[in-house]
């Protein structure tokens, strides 16, 4: 059957084509999908999942991840942090019928007609300092805490509550240079004597002391979503609107089950009430004014030429249609 039986123009993209394009982007722009602290430059083996990179990325010396500041350890007398990484390792799309991946049973295992599924997998790894290292650091940090309090009292002192509050704010934010610098000097001298591998990261403003990492504790999450498109009206506004709709979400293997259900419910509610209503598109926005485009190119034509989606259900039953592993668009060319 001809592709253009019910419209002037027809375009279709196969799910395998989209997935291949995504894989190419992941290999050629790995920094869009991998986030980690700078230590991973020297120790890429720490990543939860080995990053597959195109040769040209390596040849060009492009970073394979986007640098992140260490995860802060709250309450320490000097800024301290832990190494971590977040990796988006897979992104796949599947148009009806199911062929790219199996859906979890909670979403029905197989796609229904005119439905598409998205599968995303992300892994995160966090350094967990060994007990011995913690035990070594505790006395030093206790000493620093006391030293910090002593410096604070020596410098500010008195009973003026407002002055004390302002000083506390300056110290905690690092703008009170003298005490913080003093503490940092002590750590930099003391820490290497009792530990190995403490590094500093100068992100923005002041150094963060990063604990040495032997290995990361990694975990991965898989998220599945099923969605479809539909045309409808918006109360108070004219015309038809194309609306993306999400049918279900499943985060695999989070325990306990009530927590999984609560997270899924929260994500679903956010999508349905917060995000998807912003993505609806009116039919008028989808009309391409070819005449205006030609005029911008310096070509004046006497007729009004437009490209617009074929009408549903007048011309075609679904537009865009999700069928035979493709997303298909039917477009009409109008000349007046």
């Amino acid at each position: 059957m001809p592709f253009t039986d019910h419209s002037d123009l027809y375009g279709a993209v196969h799910d395998e084509g989209i997935n291949r394009v995504v894989r190419h982007i992941m290999r050629q722009r790995p920094s869009l999908f991998n986030y980690a602290t700078p230590v991973f430059h020297q120790r890429p083996e720490l990543f939860c999942q080995k990053i597959d990179v195109a040769d040209k990325v390596t040849k060009a010396g492009n970073p394979i991840f986007t640098e992140q500041e260490p995860l802060p350890i709250f309450g320490t007398p000097v800024p301290m942090g832990l190494n971590f990484c977040v990796q988006f390792t897979d992104f796949q799309i599947d148009f009806h019928p199911t062929d790219q991946f199996e859906l979890p049973p909670e979403l029905g295992s197989k796609l229904q007609p005119q439905r598409m599924a998205v599968r995303a997998r992300a892994c995160a790894g966090l350094d967990c300092p060994p007990k011995e290292l913690i035990d070594e650091l505790v006395p030093i940090l206790e000493r620093l805490n006391v030293a910090q309090r002593k410096l604070f009292v020596d410098e500010i002192g008195g009973d003026d509550k407002e002055k004390r509050a302002a000083a506390a704010q300056r110290i905690s934010s690092g703008t009170q240079d003298a005490p913080v610098a003093s503490i940092q000097r002590r750590v930099s001298v003391a820490a290497p004597n009792v530990t190995t591998g403490i590094t500093t990261v100068p992100p923005r403003g002041r150094d963060v002391f990063v604990l040495p990492t032997r290995e990361l504790m990694c975990f991965c999450l898989e998220v599945y979503a099923v969605a479809h498109f539909e045309w409808g009206t918006v109360p108070g506004f004219e015309g038809q609107w194309l609306k993306p709709r999400v049918d279900g979400i499943e985060i695999v293997d989070i325990a306990p089950t009530p927590m999984e259900n609560a997270i899924e419910c929260f994500v679903m509610t956010t999508l349905r009430l917060g995000i998807l209503p912003r993505l609806i598109v009116p039919m008028e926005k989808m009309v391409l004014d070819v005449t205006a485009m030609l005029q911008e190119q310096g070509l004046n034509v006497g007729q009004q030429i437009t490209l617009e989606p074929a009408a549903v259900p007048g011309d075609v039953p679904n537009n865009p249609a999700i069928e035979q592993n493709e997303i298909r668009a039917f477009i009409n060319l109008n000349v007046s």
Partner: peptide
């Protein structure tokens, strides 16, 4: 099945041809 398919009907080509002829 191809990853990308684009089709233009004979009717659309005729319309485009008429526009072309009328404007050249």
């Amino acid at each position: 099945m191809a990853h990308l398919t684009v089709a233009v009907s004979e009717g659309a080509i005729k319309k485009a041809f008429e526009v072309l002829v009328a404007n050249i």
